[in-house]
Amino acid sequence: MQLTFRIWRQEQAQAKGSFKDYKVGELTEDMSFLEALDHLNEILVLQDESVIAFEYDCREGICGQCGVFINGRAHGPHSNISTCQLHLRSFKDGDTIVVEPWRAKAFPIIKDLIVDRSAFDRIIENGAYISAKTGTAPEANAILIGKAIADRAMDAAACIGCGACVATCKNSSAALFTAAKINHLNSLPQGKLEAHQRVLDMTTQMEVEGFGHCSFTGACEVECPEGISITNIAEMNARLFKAQILG
């Protein structure tokens, strides 16, 4: 099949970017979207052009490194997948596909389709851990955790940190990302001791980084590759309220 990729090119953070069209043939429906970009980059090399910078690593939907806007949607036309899980069978021969980087104030562009998501790391640094040192743990079964609680913690903990929630949000809010981590740790007995401080520090950092507020449109949960529910944000807000009163 043949497709036209309309791709955002931007030399570096300060440069002005623009879309550029690339017509690519010899594609097959089985190819993944990222493999099509690999293929395009090989063509560019042979034409003596610099390659399109885009991110990926595991290519199985778990590392969270890939992520671009495709035809106006984070991670492409399907709900709840990552970019690396998108295949060309989702497009028609002759289609034009518009590819852009995540766009959010807190995710500055580094080059072409690559953005800087280190703001997420700094949110994690501000409390997304249990302050226990290696070597101090009690017997694992000494603290029982009901299956329902463990399952809910796991639902929230599944976040891969790709940033699609921010990219798709009209406010560029990181509420889903932050809430998922807070709810994972705060719902477990091990995380309870620092629960209030954690929610205060992490939500503060979220604002420091320049992410917007959540206005509950639900856009984020549609694009989240792990299907993390927006109810996490309501839960975070409740935890924040409690922390502000009791903290």
Binding site: A137, I143, A153, Q190
Partner: peptide, 14 residues
Amino acid sequence: DHFTQQGVPFAREY
């Protein structure tokens, strides 16, 4: 024990 303390949500029985 270590990972449980660090908040890993391992699978649990009821």
